[in-house]
Simulated scan of single mutants.
Amino acid sequence: MATSIRSIKSLVPLLDRVLVQRIKAETKTAGGIFLPESSVKELNEAKVLAVGPGALSKDGARVPMGVAQGDRVLIPQFGGSPVKVGEDEFHLFRDSEILAKINE
């Protein structure tokens, strides 16, 4: 079940959570041929929109986040908490669930 909110700007992740939006796969080939939606798969690549301040360690110190706003990351195919804003869908993942950061 997806949570519905009015504006993505009003959503602030807590602790070690990361708000991401999946990057949509190209619907057009390099030669200019348009692909039907049924043949386009979801990518595991996403853009980080917001990050929480980090989890607390056992001694109360803040653990720094592994990603920052604006990073491109690889996320698991399944999991995360879906958040729907209008027609757009976003996901909340824990920092430890992010598979990799993509450096350009």
Rank of each mutant, 00 (worst) to 15 (best):
A2W: 01
S4Q: 09
S4M: 02
R6A: 00
S7N: 06
I8L: 04
I8M: 02
V12I: 14
L14F: 04
L15S: 00
D16K: 03
V20A: 04
Q21C: 04
R22F: 04
R22M: 06
R22N: 07
R22A: 09
I23E: 12
K24H: 09
K24P: 05
A25R: 09
A25H: 11
A25S: 14
E26G: 11
K28H: 09
K28R: 13
K28Y: 05
T29D: 08
T29C: 07
G31C: 12
G31H: 12
G32D: 06
I33Q: 13
I33L: 15
I33N: 13
F34A: 15
L35Q: 07
P36G: 12
E37Q: 14
S38I: 15
V40H: 07
E42G: 12
L43P: 08
A50R: 15
V51Q: 05
G52P: 08
G52R: 06
G54S: 04
G54C: 10
A55L: 09
L56S: 11
L56M: 13
S57I: 06
S57L: 07
S57R: 09
S57E: 08
K58P: 10
D59I: 10
G60W: 05
G60N: 07
R62I: 11
V63H: 05
V63M: 09
M65C: 09
M65R: 02
G66M: 11
G66N: 12
V67E: 03
V67A: 08
A68S: 10
Q69N: 04
Q69Y: 04
D71E: 05
D71C: 07
R72W: 03
L74C: 03
L74G: 03
I75Q: 03
Q77T: 11
G79S: 03
G79M: 07
G79Y: 08
G80W: 04
V83F: 02
V83M: 02
K84A: 03
K84D: 01
V85Q: 00
G86V: 07
G86Q: 03
E87G: 13
E87A: 15
D88F: 05
E89N: 02
F93W: 00
R94W: 00
D95C: 01
D95G: 00
S96Q: 10
